[in-house]
Simulated scan of single mutants.
Amino acid sequence: MDAQPRCGAGQARWYASFGARTPVELIAATTDALTDPAPPAGAPSDPLEPLRQSGWSPAAAGNGLVSPDGTAYLQRLGSADEPGAWFVTATLAPDRPVWQARFGAHSPARLVAAFTTALADPTPVPRIDSGRSLPTRDPNIVTHRTTDVPAVYVARALQERVRSLAARHTTPPTIQVPSRQPPAKNNRSR
């Protein structure tokens, strides 16, 4: 999935790109932040802060962070004067990437922060066992597998999602359209 919003005059273009195996909850966190008219109070604006609070440490290259188990890396290209794109990669080994997400240099920090907040969330995510194994080092840390998801669980999750999305949108302001006045009569005839 790629996102390249239209920019107005004077605004820098940016992008967000998610690889095929990027967990859906991370993409959802980003799209929720993108479509939210007003970010929640207390939402982090520094993409690195949620990771630091979760025990991520500086990467060997010095321009990013690595997860405590060494399976995920966040890297920021560029320099302090000219920051570049963000890259987030999950791997099983240095030569075995599982997924990657990218955010352009001019991507809004709140969107990258929404992604990193979801990435740092330690809550296990239920996954349906599709017969294919989920690539992971420790399935107890990354996910909770289940073969059956009760319908009531899905319905409750959907209701909560709809409720939370609906609650964040306020009623749009009413646009007053001037009423059309009939043309002035000039009492002339042809």
Results as ranks from 00 to 15, higher is better:
residue 163 R to T: 13
residue 42 G to P: 12
residue 171 T to Y: 01
residue 61 A to V: 05
residue 97 P to S: 05
residue 166 A to P: 00
residue 128 I to Y: 10
residue 15 Y to E: 13
residue 11 Q to E: 11
residue 123 T to P: 00
residue 118 A to R: 09
residue 147 T to Q: 13
residue 115 F to G: 09
residue 124 P to L: 05
residue 31 T to Y: 03
residue 173 P to L: 06
residue 120 A to T: 15
residue 27 I to Y: 00
residue 123 T to Q: 04
residue 125 V to Q: 05
residue 120 A to V: 14
residue 184 A to H: 14
residue 39 P to T: 03
residue 4 Q to L: 11
residue 94 P to V: 14
residue 84 G to E: 04
residue 43 A to D: 11
residue 139 P to K: 06
residue 180 R to M: 04
residue 82 E to G: 01
residue 39 P to R: 13
residue 36 D to R: 07
residue 152 V to G: 01
residue 18 F to T: 04
residue 94 P to Y: 15
residue 4 Q to P: 00
residue 11 Q to K: 08
residue 149 V to A: 14
residue 72 A to V: 10
residue 39 P to H: 04
residue 148 D to T: 14
residue 127 R to A: 07
residue 73 Y to I: 10
residue 156 R to E: 07
residue 150 P to D: 14
residue 124 P to G: 02
residue 9 A to P: 08
residue 111 L to F: 03
residue 20 A to W: 07
residue 146 T to P: 00
residue 166 A to S: 10
residue 158 L to Q: 09
residue 70 G to N: 12
residue 60 A to D: 11
residue 148 D to Q: 12
residue 107 S to T: 15
residue 14 W to I: 09
residue 58 P to W: 00
residue 43 A to M: 10
residue 168 R to F: 01
residue 103 F to T: 07
residue 168 R to S: 05
residue 114 A to G: 04
residue 118 A to V: 12
residue 186 N to S: 14
residue 13 R to G: 03
residue 182 P to Y: 11
residue 13 R to K: 06
residue 134 L to Y: 03
residue 56 W to M: 15
residue 47 P to E: 06
residue 178 P to R: 07
residue 66 V to T: 13
residue 124 P to I: 06
residue 24 V to M: 11
residue 182 P to K: 15
residue 141 I to G: 00
residue 148 D to E: 08
residue 44 P to G: 09
residue 172 P to L: 14
residue 116 T to W: 03
residue 153 Y to I: 02
residue 46 D to P: 07
residue 147 T to L: 07
residue 85 A to C: 03
residue 100 Q to N: 07
residue 74 L to A: 12
